[in-house]
Write a protein that binds this DNA or RNA. Structure first.
Length: 416
RNA sequence: GUCCCCAUCGUCUAGCCCGGCUUAGGACAUCGCCCUUUCAAGGCGGUAACACGGGUUCAAAUCCCGUUGGGGACGCCA
């Protein structure tokens, strides 16, 4: 949450710290006859459930303990210690849920069963605790996944029994995995932390997630301010959305491209360490790092990619891509590389501009295309065939390393 | 099995509530072209959808019904 820069006003609260609160509300319901002790054992219930399933009947508690209590006070006292507490649901009529996203939804009360609010070991159940918490903390809006839609009518009756005004409900559509089945914390979803470690920016993740199931016309990219300003329940979609990693990746690259290089320099440090490009505790010249990052921004979809793209700027040596090496570091390029090395040695201002002049002079003299020289150099300096503009790369790598690497490459061309 | 929700390009979605202005728009992905020292980025263009069937109406992606499909819930889990 903090990483995502999502803020909260109070808490967090632990339900385990609030058992007394739940107990007092449960006792209240018991006293008012709105709840009752149930003596059925979990095993019995499970057995009945299996039977119902086998017979194709509805899986609902039959309410057999509902009216036992009267006249059996002794038993209550005796067995109350290991009995669960059930909530008395209305058995006829209907319950209407007014959902901010879906509108009016009607449930038959006959479908609702007397759910357990306190287990036989005295611990309260989820459906009870959430309602008690809402009542206790004056909650006005309940916004959650639509897998809770079916819990809502039950909870509405608990709010009512507790004498609390029914809060407003909004049930958000689910996020599905690529297989179109439910994606959630409890079921195979990648955690937020995992995205952090993969090199995603919090803004990108939030932007992506918000746009999943919500829209504001055709707009795809939103600042935090726009998000809070434009958000409304009306624009939330009703249908479940499939999580699409490619679009998230696109958004992430978009955010990287538009982030300040200085900022990225800070963010990329842990990734450089993780990839063994720099040692922990060591630092880099900030200004230089920013300069190196700027042309890499539009080439990196994640901070992880950005870090590996920085490798050849920082490392002492290059690792050659074999294919690139055999294709470009050969006889043909040997003389050009030698000439380039000699001329670069004489430059005092080792800037992209000056380096470019040297390159152009050489290709004009030999009447070859820039690529004929640029590609071998690229392999010599970066080890591969892909990089930002080569003049720029040389400037950032610096004169000393450039010459060293050129020398090494020239050696290779001699051996081929 | 019972109940609930949902249904526009491969994916996210606009349009739907308040029927005509829609040859159904945008974005990601994909394909092609341009730019170009490579890779990107960028620009331009292409392929691609109203699940199906009825009805209402002069007119339906838009309203109604059904079918099909998908998802969810039915726990002394949360």
């Amino acid at each position: 949450m903090k990483w995502l820069k999502l803020d909260w006003d109070e808490g967090p609260y632990r339900q385990t710290d609030r058992f007394d609160v739940y107990k007092s509300y449960a006792d209240k319901l018991l006293d008012e006859g709105k709840a009752y002790y149930c003596y059925c054992s979990p095993e019995e219930l499970e057995q009945r459930r299996q039977e119902a399933l086998a017979q194709g009947k509805t899986l609902k508690y039959d309410g057999r303990c509902r009216n036992k209590e009267k006249g059996q006070g002794a038993r209550v006292k005796e067995q109350g210690s290991n009995a669960a507490i059930r909530f008395k649901m209305p058995q006829d009529g209907e319950t209407v849920v007014h959902d901010l996203i879906r509108g009016r939804i009607v449930f038959e009360n006959a479908q609702l069963d007397d759910l357990i609010i306190v287990r036989s070991d005295k611990t309260p159940t989820y459906n009870f605790t959430v309602v008690v918490d809402d009542v206790d903390m004056n909650i006005t809006h309940v916004i959650r996944g639509d897998d809770h839609l079916n819990n809502t009518p039950k909870q509405i009756h608990i709010y009512a029994a507790l004498g609390y005004e029914i809060p407003l409900f909004a049930h958000l559509p689910m996020i599905l995995g690529p297989d179109k089945t439910r994606l959630s914390k409890r079921h195979g979803a990648t955690s937020v932390t995992a995205y952090k470690e993969m090199g995603f920016l919090p803004d990108a993740l939030v932007n992506y997630l918000v746009r999943l199931g919500w829209s504001h016309g055709d707009q795809e990219v939103f600042t935090r301010d726009e998000l809070t300003q434009y958000f409304s329940f009306e624009n939330i979609g009703k249908s479940a959305a499939v999580f699409n990693p490619e679009k998230l990746l696109w958004l992430n690259s978009h955010y990287i491209m538009n982030s300040a290089s200085e900022k990225l320099g800070e963010l990329v440090m842990p990734f450089l360490i993780k990839q063994g490009i720099i040692e922990e505790g060591k630092s880099l010249n900030r200004e230089w790092l920013s300069k190196a990052i700027t042309p890499l921004k539009e080439r990196s979809k994640t901070l992880t990619e950005l870090a590996s793209a920085l490798r050849y700027y920082i490392a002492d040596d290059v690792e050659y891509n074999e294919k690139a090496k055999s294709k470009f570091l050969d006889e043909k390029s040997r003389d050009l590389l030698i000439e380039l090395k000699d001329k670069l040695m004489d430059i005092h201002d080792f800037s992209a501009e000056e380096i470019g002049k040297v390159f152009r002079a050489i290709i004009e003299k030999h009447n070859v295309k820039l690529g004929n020289l640029a590609q071998p150099v690229r392999v010599a300096i970066t080890g591969g065939t892909e990089s930002p503009g080569i003049f720029e790369v040389l400037e950032i790598v610096g004169k000393e390393k450039t010459l060293k690497r050129l020398e090494k490459a020239i050696e290779i061309t001699g051996n081929s």
